[in-house]
Simulated scan of single mutants.
Amino acid sequence: MDPRSEVLLRQAELFNGPLLLAGLPADDLLGQLPHARGWSWHAGDQQLLEQRFPDRTYLGVSPAAGDYSSAVLFLPKSRELTAYLLHALAANLQGGELFLVGEKRAGVERAAKQLAEFGKARKIDSARHCQLWQIHVEQAPAQPQLEELAQHYSLELADGPLKVVTLPGVFSHGRLDVGSALLLEHLDDLPNGHILDFGCGAGVIGASIKRRYPQSRLTLLDVDAFAVTSSRLTLAANNLQAEVIIGDGIDAAPDNLAAIISNPPFHQGVHTHYQATEHLLRQAAQHLQRSGQLRLVANSFLKYPPLIEQHLGPCQTLADANGFRIYRADKA
């Protein structure tokens, strides 16, 4: 059981009515709170929860309409995403109760100050290195419009400016990260055919590929619903069309790919998390056609080449700069 869920269950008497759990972990909390429903924006968590609790959770970027009288937000990493989620929940809770739970090291006490906009916040429990806060929503705000919270910036690329649209909570919100900047410089000579942008984020890499290789079929894949929505907005801003899908890692990817291009994630919440990338490296060959190519950027301290060579083929370093490396391997 996640420690945040354990803190909630210490106060289970507060959650006897219709309850929405936003950003809940994939544990047994729904089994312990029979009147609760879950809202997730992480495809992996949603998949696990749906298997155990059919029709009690949903995946998306906004809360579904419901008659719940209280809601709990499990603190996300991003302060901007926290603000959006609190507004989105409070908008449906006039006269109801809004709770915030999170780890101390994730900044839950600081985030609790964001509750003050909707009522007087009070800490009702502290255990398992977590805190639980509560407010009574005295004045519900208007439902926030997610696209109005997007940040826009433009990249000057060799083939012209590329417009990028990022939403709260998406990796490198409002700016280009160093790894993606290096990868953008090494997208030459991609093979013809179906190309996958794995871990697409705001769609920077995918949109650039589609513009440079317009005849290629392109799929963008991410585990996060806010990232998938951002990618769609970025493609639309540049008048580009591609398939954008949400799924839990490389297992959700199409087969018979000509290339997999990735700036893979290695954080989940506040935790360092390499599992998705390591699974990508182990399974990439299963999704690539013969002579298909894997090209990715990674922090130079990560020992990925042995894993790439074990499961795919000889690994070539195309670039090494600013603490990042570009790796390429072709399926034998």
Rank of each mutant, 00 (worst) to 15 (best):
F226T: 08
A65P: 06
R79C: 02
E117P: 06
L85A: 08
F226R: 14
N256A: 15
R325K: 14
V164G: 01
D197V: 10
R212D: 07
E50T: 11
A12I: 13
Q310S: 11
T57H: 13
A202G: 15
T317W: 07
D330C: 01
L196V: 14
G107L: 04
L280P: 00
F324D: 00
R56K: 14
D251S: 15
N92G: 12
S78Q: 06
H311A: 04
H273D: 15
E109W: 10
Y68T: 02
L9F: 01
P63A: 04
H152K: 12
N16F: 13
E117H: 09
Q114I: 08
L296Y: 00
D255Y: 12
S78R: 02
K123W: 11
P191W: 02
K113E: 13
A227S: 14
A121K: 00
Y68E: 11
D28P: 05
K104E: 13
A116I: 10
D224Q: 12
L93H: 00
V61M: 11
H267T: 02
A236Y: 10
F53L: 05
T277A: 04
I209C: 05
A140I: 01
A298E: 00
K123R: 15
A253F: 09
G201N: 06
H267W: 11
H271V: 12
K331F: 05
E97N: 07
D2E: 04
L318A: 03
A285T: 06
S180W: 03
Q114S: 15
Q283W: 14
L288A: 01
Q275M: 09
H186G: 05
G60E: 09
T229V: 07
P161N: 10
A90V: 00
G119C: 03
N238Y: 12
V101H: 02
N322Y: 13
D55A: 15
L29G: 00
E309M: 03
T166E: 04
R325V: 07
G107W: 08
G31C: 03
S62G: 08
R79S: 14
A91D: 07
H173D: 08
L176R: 08
L318N: 03
D27Q: 06
I260W: 00
P25I: 04
F226Q: 10
S291G: 02
Q215C: 09
S231D: 13
S172Q: 02
L149Y: 07
H287L: 05
L132M: 13
A111Q: 04
E6T: 06
P214V: 06
T82P: 11
N322W: 10
K77Y: 05
I245N: 05
V164W: 05
R37L: 13
R79Y: 06
Q94S: 09
K123P: 05
L85I: 08
S126R: 15
Y68H: 11
A65G: 05
A65Q: 10
Q316S: 10
G269N: 08
Y58A: 13
L86K: 00
Q286P: 03
L176M: 09
S291N: 14
L296A: 00
Y304C: 01
A83L: 08
I205K: 03
E13P: 05
G160W: 10
N299W: 02
Y304N: 01
L20T: 06
Q47I: 14
L81H: 04
A276R: 01
E50L: 10
N192A: 15
Q268D: 11
I124D: 08
H311P: 02
L196Q: 11
L307M: 07
